[in-house]
Nucleic acid binder design. Structure first.
Lengths: 142, 142
DNA sequence: ACTGAAAAATACCTGGC
DNA sequence: GCCAGGTATTTTTCAGT
């Protein structure tokens, strides 16, 4: 990947609504050139899209946790990620090389909702869990 | 938070560049009303901004890991998050209620870079670490 | 690949309900 | 708090180098 593309990408991570004119000034290119590069990065898939950054605490899900999940029955076809996808509150699913098979990030409204979520994980995805609650988030997405 | 705001927020998480007209059609409001609501959510801080979604594998950092970090000397003033912030590759820092004090998400280019990063964590943030490598990411952000 | 300029779409603001 | 309309920016396309 070229240096100009990388810089454009960094700027777009900082501000996903930066205009092509702004970006052009920052990297020393015309708006058209920037536009071309952005479109190409979208086509290539390096740039997947744009999203809103939400304050989850204010948005009704103040409780974040990480859940290590391991299938209870190893004979099951491993469609665990698919099953997890349907459970509300599960924000991300990583397959990891550790004690557990999966590491999940979850966001919920209350401790009760976390309890219900963990129960749902057992019932619907057939996994055992080990949960670590997030106390605070000094920072995210550096 | 009102229902209309929540729906607008969800749509903006899905597509951070959805136009106010689109959003308005989806929630049954005029473009002006949607525009007002979005501005208010930005002012209140619920909506923190917008960012590009990057394919980190393609963007030169194919290796993701989670690092549990615990201060080596508990007498230190706890400015660990600040110190971590300056280390390249550390993407997020969570203070957690678990065996470790902090859980970090890191993204690097190679196993060698991960080794260097962990060394930097020990040297510059004075923490012991336990690392879990991510093998794949079935999905992220809901 | 980049530029510059025109055309289309969108964001943003103001007044009125 | 919502809507409608007007103006300013921005996005998008295109011909030229």
């Amino acid at each position: 990947m070229e240096d100009a593309d990388r810089r454009i990408l960094d700027l777009l991570v900082e501000d996903g609504r930066a205009s092509y004119t702004e970006l052009g000034k920052a990297v020393g290119l015309s708006t058209s050139a920037v536009h071309q590069r952005v479109r190409r990065m979208e086509e290539r898939g390096v740039l997947r899209g744009f999203t809103a950054v939400v304050d989850h605490a204010q948005a009704g899900r103040p409780l974040t946790a990480f859940v290590e999940a391991t299938p209870l029955d190893n004979n099951d076809p491993d469609d665990v990620p698919e099953r997890l996808r349907g459970i509300d509150g599960v924000v991300a699913c990583y397959s990891v090389a550790g004690d557990a098979n999966y590491l999940l990030m979850v966001r919920v409204a209350t401790p009760q909702a976390l309890e219900a979520l963990i129960a749902a994980l057992r019932a619907r995805a057939h996994v055992s869990t080990k949960t670590t609650v997030v106390l605070s988030t000094p920072w995210e997405r550096r």
